[in-house]
Amino acid sequence: MDKRNIFPISADSKVTHELEPRELGTCEKERRKFISQVLGGSLMLMALPTLASTLFKQGMSEAEKQRIKKEYLEKYCPPGYDPFAHQWAYGIDAYKCIGCNQCMTACKLENGLPGHPSINNRWIERYTKLAGDPHVHVDSCTEPANIAVSDPDNFIYRFDDRYAEADVEYSFFVPKMCNHCADPVCTQVCPKGATFQTPDGAVLVDEDRCIGCLYCKQACPYGARYLRPIPARPDGVTRVAGKCTWCWHRITKGQEPACVDICPKKALIFGDLNDPNSDISLWFKEHGRELLVLKGDMGTHPSVKYIGINEEVR
């Protein structure tokens, strides 16, 4: 065999023997056997996940659960805060919203977001129906006309007054944000468990473990996620998924989220559903029949509920 000739095509093969063990499969019977083996193998592969799931599923005793809960509370929860004792919820009154974008500014400054209008935890949309036009027009902070009257470098966002002269049938503002779903898609798809739901209902991101694959951004039906271009705080990390945390660092200290605190119209309501006298419990009770969620057909069960929106909002 020529040592240098390591690139020969089959025609160059010099040695021929009677024995060709590799070509035993040429006969029809062999081929059928091979195909049935492939089918059998695929059945085995299909059985694997079932097997694996039964192996990984472990029953846990009640005492063990209590121990884990105690350790969780003592070691990992902020002092004085019991996430099991709260069930946070958020209400948005679109009747009251005046589109001042103060919540967006407050959110960005509170959570260390860049001024860029394409990176948001929350934003406001304007739905406008013009007389004689079957389509509803929607715009928000990324609309070039709105950017023109805004000042993103100074965290100031405004809506332009484009419908001042138009014959408007109806028009309203809708604040949008992460819905902190009870059955979040983002936590379902995160390959690593870097985004998760706390016992109090907030959906958070562990920026020390996020790999920045953005599968969660693809999965979120509400477009509430983004890739962080700047760190949230001096010791933070870039290029990880970011999202609304309901200002978890505030609510664990007994404060409201920055957006709720800043809203000059009290259009945003936040509170604990476990407390029957909290703002949100009273508000839910008052508006029980009007409460709506966004994209209910996704089966995500949002914790953010709206009043004053119509079917065009999604």
Binding site: Y76, C77, P78, Y81, P83, A106, L109, E110, N111, T198, L204, D206, E207, D208, R209, A232, R233, T245, W248, H249, R250, T252, K253, Q255, A258, D261, I262
Partner: peptide, 13 residues
């Protein structure tokens, strides 16, 4: 562990 980190963010407002 991340809970403590998230909760330790500075309050701006």
């Amino acid at each position: 562990e991340s809970l403590l980190y998230i909760a330790s963010a500075p309050v701006e407002y």
